[in-house]
Design a protein around this nucleic acid. Structure first.
Lengths: 235, 235
DNA sequence: CGTCATTTTGAGGTATTTCAACGAAGGTGG
DNA sequence: CCACCTTCGTTGAAATACCTCAAAATGACG
């Protein structure tokens, strides 16, 4: 037993308090503390925030806009690993280096949290870690869900799922009837593990079947909610 | 800012200390504490540990053997989400309920950590959370990597990658030249998002090409390391 | 308003899925 | 300990869906 716990298990699944609060549990004092160590950064679209392999010195929180992270693979290909929306944290590192490149998709405003300060804050206030732990569990669930999504073999279903994800992401914002699609088709294709053409054809098919409407490249409207949700769910 | 941090960002990427220690940092006292609140459980192969939707009351750590977790999808299909090896923790929950079903693949020995006790321990010793946080970041990286793996369209590459994963998992155990494959072909297929037949054909092909040997269903030996690694890497 | 990148659309090739049948292995009971 | 039965794995053949290559059309941007 001693040994088992000594090795400190890798968290394949995650312990989550049965009574864990749904969202933030930060006290006013904690918020102030985090605000104090962060810097506000504004970047134009396409700006690179950090590169894969760079020494990691900060963690970022998206305040406004959308960020994408991608990874260069040994084969030379490039794979989009995530899209970050407001209130998402990013800056995943290993061995002191970022494992992804992060780039602004739209104009963005970020909060930059220097690792050193953040570590100190976490050390000083042990309870600050709790909400982090909780959120990580949430992200791990998301990651599992994404893995499930990626094993779907039908392109139409994957694309529908992607739009659905975008919709949830922006729920509570602006015009709810329209899904905003800030990224390019080729980003979507890359993220979903499909070819650009297949994504194009899939959206065309969804449109032809009257399930969605695509007023312009960066907007999608769901016309037939029932069939849309059915596609999303039938993994 | 206040608001942003108040909502507590979802951790898409993960903050990881540049100087974070590679593995456990548990003190003797911490280990003892965790050991004190855990129960040792022994289960035969195929035993169900908990079911998706059950009220989550514990977190588990694999001590001996292999566990698989799977999720029942709305479509009625069932997807294997993970395999847990010694020193892995599992018991991912949301809203107080397990999100996966966990089942023993082999005979297993587990440590059961009641959530209530674990929470208390974490609360009492804030530093206990740090290694957890670190490990979760690690798992998140793993999850990202798996997502990347799943977008590969070539079956042979995915299967090779799976064997490679198994190999790393058991590194440092027993006979290193043989990869132990405790799970069934259909589990592998399900996990990789391939059909059972395709997995079978892929392993047959790897064998035919002299890259691996398959003495029996639960063992694989790498014959041509160079080509094997090449397949694994060329995502 | 023209240029360039992005997206759409078409045609053919290929890999995986499906369907089907056979063979092997493991577990159980007599 | 063997026979039986059930589960699991292998192999073959046809259908489907995606990928690649190629070219036209649309939209973004200066």
């Amino acid at each position: 037993m001693k040994n088992t716990l000594g090795y400190l298990p890798s968290l394949r699944g995650m312990p989550v308090s049965a009574s864990a609060p749904p969202d933030s549990l930060l006290t006013q004092a904690q918020r102030r503390r985090l605000a104090r160590i962060s810097t506000r950064v504004r970047l134009r679209a396409r700006a690179v925030i950090f590169r894969q392999g760079d020494k990691s010195d900060s963690v970022f929180i998206t305040a406004v806009g959308v960020v994408r992270t991608f990874r260069d693979l040994p084969s030379g290909r490039r794979r989009v690993t995530a899209f970050l929306f407001p209130n998402d944290i990013f800056g995943l590192a290993q061995h002191g280096k970022y494992v992804n490149t992060a780039q602004a998709v739209t104009e963005v405003v970020l909060h930059r949290l220097p690792l050193q300060s953040l570590e100190k804050a976490l050390r000083d206030d042990g309870r600050l870690q709790f909400p982090f732990l909780y959120k990580v569990a949430h992200e791990l669930r998301q990651a599992q869900r994404q893995s499930i999504a990626l094993t779907r073999r039908d392109a139409v279903g994957r694309v529908a799922m992607f739009f659905s994800m975008l919709e949830r992401e922006r729920s509570g914002h602006e015009d709810k009837s329209v899904i905003v699609v800030p990224m390019s088709r080729s980003d979507i294709a890359n993220y979903l593990g499909l070819s650009l053409e297949t994504v194009s054809r899939a959206t065309a098919r969804l449109t032809r079947q009257g399930i969605i409407a695509v007023p312009d490249r960066h907007a999608v409207r769901v016309l037939d909610r029932a069939r849309f949700e059915h596609l999303v769910a039938s993994a």
